[in-house]
Write a protein that binds this DNA or RNA. Structure first.
Lengths: 201, 201
DNA sequence: GGCATATTTTAATCAACATTAAAATTCCGT
DNA sequence: ACGGAATTTTAATGTTGATTAAAATATGCC
């Protein structure tokens, strides 16, 4: 939606910076407590702000979730693009995408929202997110199909296999804590190896 | 906790039946809309009841979630027991467990709650669920370790591999709809194949 | 230093549930 | 039918939390 643009485009860099931080903090809260489980006050407290202050950055709580999801979708899409633009077999490209995606989920970009409460969104936002999500799934399934075609990936039901892998990936924020016992590199190494075995011909 | 027993044990079969149905309907709602995202009225409507009527079966909304999670944990534990009591290699046993678990998630037992909002639980309930969850994870990791020891499973980080697989499994209720395009058997067949490839030595 | 804009707070308001108590109804055995 | 237990509804109550408007403060520019 271009409404976000209209709302955010003409603000200064300070604004954009804080707005982005808001999205990350909110994403972490939502991941841990769920949408309606986290009050705006919870989010605000972590930013040393009052709940009311958030409305300077966001029209409503629903929009906050939407923007978190949208940000998640964007990061996923970027990872997908990077993967697609990689050379090599279908398997290589699929693994490259996954690698970038894991990076986004656990790396510098900070907490990324698990899109687990899409139904709570307003119809328009819901449609938007669902469409992006669908596009993303299809792109991934296409990579798998490509790999099957060129013999680098073992024949399988692409839809179901995609679901399995996406599930494993989407669940990561549930147990991964930045600065925790497990490092990003461990996750990437182990997950990549896992997916390689699962997909490889 | 034995409090549930005390509350439910002396009721008749009618009661138990409806109580169970409540849990299943609630589980489906929670899976789709999230904990606080679904009102008791939502749940009640699907049972042709008033929201207030639910309090005949449950002390509070929090307890409803707790019981849903507990039911999910029980089903998982049962699947684990079945898997463990299977003969064969570590891989065989791990796959047997997964098969039973998929059956529970997609089969007759109906909607099983995704335990994604544990933080919303009361401390005692939270502890209980977390403990069961941890036990379950450990049991699964033990199966994997067993498989690695007997050579049926490729060497890997059991914790991380367990996380990956559990993520894939836990995510299923997000996209699987009973009576939808995909059947239980398809899921089982494809997921089992997937896991076999991912784990196999 | 002083104006203008950006940012945040204070102090209401308001609606949406969860929850409860009491009343009404259904269900079942006799 | 009758009577009592089981089940559900009606009709409050209360709290939580989102939202808003106006006031207050901070920040950068001349």
């Amino acid at each position: 939606m271009s409404e976000i643009k209209q709302w955010h485009s003409d603000r200064g860099p300070q604004y954009r910076f804080k707005h982005d931080r808001l999205l990350r903090v909110a994403a972490e809260c939502f991941n841990q407590k769920g949408y309606s489980g986290t009050s705006l006050k919870d989010v605000a407290r972590q930013l040393d702000l009052t709940d009311a202050a958030l409305y300077y950055y966001v029209r409503s709580k629903e929009e906050l979730v939407y923007q978190c999801y949208r940000r998640a979708a964007d990061l996923g899409a970027r990872a997908m693009t990077l993967g697609q633009s990689t050379g090599g077999s279908g398997l290589d490209r699929a693994l490259a995408y996954l690698d970038h995606h894991l990076d986004a989920l656990c790396g510098e970009d900070g907490p990324v929202a698990i899109m687990s409460e899409i139904p709570s969104l307003k119809p328009e936002h819901k449609h938007d997110i669902l469409e992006r999500s669908r596009r993303h799934s299809l792109a991934f399934e296409a990579l798998i199909a490509e790999g099957i075609a060129d013999g680098s990936i073992a024949p399988c039901d692409v839809r179901m296999t995609g679901n399995a892998i996406m599930g494993a990936v989407n669940w990561i924020p549930k147990w991964f804590r930045p600065g925790g016992a497990v490092t990003v590199d461990q996750v990437r190494a182990e997950f990549t190896a896992f997916f390689r075995r699962a997909l490889g011909a």
